[in-house]
């Protein structure tokens, strides 16, 4: 990998790190299980590794931003995650911050 590509790859990782929480939290406004989340995000152009999403879901649950329930009604038991009230409040704050930032960054980039 050339030096420029390497710097680019690191840059993308840094950018994505903060955004991942926002995307996952937003997606969990509807009950979702890990694998479905990975698929849906990939289909929306945000490819995230399962080994990133699963531990993240767990950490958000530990912070009481998500809650989870096992669905054992089918032959494939799945753990569904859904946003909590605390998660909703945080999501609103981060979304607003994100929109302002994107607007400001766009202004800078277009200058």
């Amino acid at each position: 990998m050339s030096e420029l590509n390497e710097i680019y790859a690191n840059f993308v990782v840094e950018l994505r790190r903060g955004v991942t929480n926002l995307v996952v939290l937003s997606h969990c406004q509807q009950p979702s299980y890990g694998y479905q989340l990975v698929k849906n995000l990939a289909d929306s152009g945000i490819p995230l590794e399962a080994n990133t999403v699963y531990p993240l879901l767990r950490r958000l649950e530990d912070q009481a931003l998500l809650r989870s329930d096992w669905d054992t009604s089918t032959d494939k038991p799945r753990k569904y995650y859904q946003i909590t009230e605390k998660g909703r409040q945080l999501l609103a704050q981060i979304t607003s911050y994100w929109r302002d930032s994107v607007k400001n960054i766009e202004t800078i980039l277009e200058a």
Binding site: G34, Y35, Y54, R58, K79
Partner: peptide, 17 residues
């Protein structure tokens, strides 16, 4: 206290994949 739950979830992920 997390082992069993994480284990089941990983198992479910591996099966789906």
């Amino acid at each position: 206290n997390k082992r069993q739950d994480v284990g089941q979830e990983l198992e479910s992920l591996i099966e789906e994949t």
